[in-house]
Design a protein around this nucleic acid. Structure first.
Lengths: 252, 252
DNA sequence: CCTAGTCCACTGGTCGGACCAGTCACAGCT
DNA sequence: AGCTGTGACTGGTCCGACCAGTGGACTAGG
């Protein structure tokens, strides 16, 4: 066999992909900005020198990626959308929902993210924000008497406030998405648990401890308590061999 | 103004969207599994009772989302792909690259993720894995004499091993993506810095400290050092008001 | 002058038919 | 049996057509 250059496998590039690339490149370069409009489909046909089917396939891909939005009859053409977290959320939900990720990975991720957000919060929070946090605690207490769904919603509000105070929307988005997925995986088990009310009360107690640490400004303790609580709350649903990785996140 | 029920804005549902939904639902229900094949486009035309254009637009969306892959001439029809992290990565890159996220948020995210991964690693690593980690350290040392790109690549290998040992692919993916984005934002500034070599040496020294803590099994110290290092390395590129949120991540 | 209503050019959504290059299974040949 | 050529398919692209909607221009009424 002759020694030659290393060739790479080649896959055909479809026309609509080139269009998608061009649009995305223009967007990355700043030649196209959110709020601006793309030319109409028939105009794009002329500019790209392809058929309308091809242009439309490209637009469908861009639309599915949350880059543009087409509305029938709009004489201004497809609209370039502001970058939203919705697209990331969509993909994350898809990824996380399937067996590609284990429950342990999801919960571990939450322990990290939530702990970090709480740590930052206890450092940066103003007294006003502290009041906001304590307010959600009161709401959680009230929600216990309603049902588990209400409690879960109040819990979400708590973590929302935390994430906002920590001033990192990336953490916020990731946290929210993963939290939703985890809950969708095991919420029925929790809700139907005979001691559902006891669990909620315990969770509330844990949250109160976290808030106490936040008030004291002890970020380290707050984060540790938060992680410990999440472990106590969810670890029962994680099979033992993987539970070890979660314990490694608590320590000292 | 009459008090009435809260109406929601309504947007037309396009035919291709219904097809996408049906396929994704079938996939979520398990009626469709990775590795299986979809009927050919012309067969789908008959089953969905729409035109081929519509079927193709649906397939393009599914393909862009990493759900299926079409190859011309394949008599078996479009292939259902295994769920990959590629899709998530794509979206994350898009989200992170644009101004929606600040550099501080990205770096803060990395400090958290990387610190957590290192903490878990120092707890769970086998002696064999420790050797792997130390190996990447040697590679980093050698890469310093080449150029910044080589060093950066060796650094990536280091974090890769860490993420693998921590057994959480979600952390791994997020870490990798954000790292890439951060580097693409500031790598030129670092590479062209007059003291580029000094920076690399310092970074290597920091990594060595982290590895030392990992060897000692002190996860807390390892994570703290890692976060501190990343702060030292990147904080100069973050404007002051936001730098505070990063400092809040180090503490004690 | 300004407003309210009408109208129409144009938009995107969908359709059906056509052609091409590529792929793969199979029948036929060696 | 092993190889080869063929042909029935595949997806990629193009074209032309029709429809229901949109929104701006234009007009009639104040």
């Amino acid at each position: 066999m002759t020694k030659g250059p290393q060739f790479q496998p080649v896959q055909p590039v479809r026309a609509y992909q080139r269009i998608v690339e061009q649009v995305e490149d223009a967007l990355a370069r700043g030649d196209l900005a959110p709020g601006q409009r793309l030319p109409s489909e028939r105009e794009l046909v002329a500019q790209f020198a392809v058929s309308r089917s091809t242009v439309r396939e490209a637009l469908r891909v861009l639309e599915s990626n949350g880059v543009v939005r087409s509305r029938p009859g709009d004489p201004n053409g497809p609209e370039i959308l502001p970058f939203s977290q919705a697209a990331l959320r969509k993909q994350m939900v898809r990824l996380a929902r399937v067996d590609e990720l284990t429950l342990a990975e999801l919960i571990g991720f939450r322990m990290i993210m939530d702990g970090a957000a709480i740590q930052v919060t206890s450092r940066l929070r103003t007294s006003e924000q502290l009041a906001d946090i304590e307010e959600t605690l009161v709401a959680m207490r009230a929600a216990i008497d309603v049902d588990f769904a209400a409690f879960s919603e109040a819990d979400l509000a708590f973590h929302d406030v935390i994430a906002q105070v920590s001033r990192n929307s990336l953490i916020q988005t990731c946290n929210e998405v993963v939290r939703g997925v985890v809950l969708s995986l095991i919420s029925d088990k929790i809700a139907h648990a005979p001691n559902s009310r006891a669990l909620m009360l315990e969770s509330l107690q844990h949250h109160a401890e976290v808030v106490e640490a936040i008030r004291a400004g002890d970020g380290h303790a707050a984060a540790r308590i938060a992680r410990q609580n999440m472990y106590d709350y969810y670890a029962g649903y994680v099979p033992e061999p993987e539970r070890e990785t979660l314990r490694a996140l608590i320590e000292d």
